[in-house]
Amino acid sequence: MHEMALMESLVELIEDESRKRGFSRVRVVRLELGALGGVDADAMRFCFDAIVKGALVEGALLDIVVKPGEGWCLDCAEAVVIHERFDACPRCGGNHVQAAAGDELRLKELEVE
């Protein structure tokens, strides 16, 4: 989707953190992406490579951790793992599954020096 805009926000966020915490080089950027979030990990990597030139994060490794989607099955009244928003409940096969978690888009941590 709008991975380039997201990458720009990410780079700003890291520069903001570097001013607050006083580091000048980033070795690893660790992101958490929810599987239901509609953000593509490969597209994020592509945009990262395109955008880091001259920025603080140039040369850093982008590590993306994909978090599985979580739904709430209204029939089973239980939390279940889903891979798409419209997935049926893996327990009962019903379609009454409400996505509960899995659209995270977070900067988890940085390895810096």
Binding site: L6, S9, L10, E12, L13, E17, R21, F23, L31, E104, L105, R106, L107, K108, E109, L110, E111, V112, E113
Partner: peptide, 13 residues
């Protein structure tokens, strides 16, 4: 010089 936990939403701004 190690790991910093950030835990910030990329869309925070």
């Amino acid at each position: 010089e190690r790991i910093i936990r950030i835990e910030r939403d990329i869309l925070a701004k």
